[in-house]
């Protein structure tokens, strides 16, 4: 087989700790996914802590082309979808002598029972 078809392109993802999400690292060439896994460790994980690795053949990835990416631009009129659009409630709650339950407060509720 010629070298033009021998190599396949793999994208490499890894996570630093068991609880973190996967992050894209880089791509590499390998003849199959087992070799891709070995190459991923050799090429990208020589030092940093790593808890798991994915290798994905590029032909299985549906990406966006340049034109499609243009559709990702957001109009700047979507405040009703975000907390920012409701910031005025802070002032209103003050009138009732209550603190607003903002993102920082609500996201702090997770975890162990106090």
């Amino acid at each position: 087989m010629s070298e033009k078809t021998f190599y396949q392109e793999y994208e490499v993802f890894s996570k630093r700790t068991p609880s973190s999400g996967f992050q894209h690292q880089f791509s590499l060439l390998a003849p199959n996914e087992d070799m891709a896994m070995i190459m991923a460790q050799e090429n990208f994980m020589r030092r940093e802590p790593v808890a798991d690795i994915w290798v994905v053949n590029r032909k299985h990835i549906r990406g966006m082309n340049e034109e499609e990416k243009l559709t990702l631009n957001r109009l700047d009129n979507k405040e009703y979808r975000t907390a920012k659009g409701y910031g005025y409630l802070k002032k209103k709650w003050r009138k009732y002598e209550q603190q607003m339950l903002d993102e920082k407060e609500i996201m702090s509720w997770g975890g162990k029972k106090k």
């Binding site: 070298e3 033009k4 190599y7 880089f26 791509s27 590499l28 060439l29 190459m39 050799e42 090429n43 990208f44 020589r46």
Partner: peptide
């Protein structure tokens, strides 16, 4: 020495993707 070869691998990957329109590869 191992790092240098690793850097070569990374950079050749970047070059190969740019070479696609010309049908050229690492070889």
């Amino acid at each position: 020495v191992q790092d240098e070869m690793g850097h070569g691998q990374l950079l050749l990957r970047v070059a190969e993707d740019l070479l696609k329109p010309y049908g050229k590869t690492r070889g």
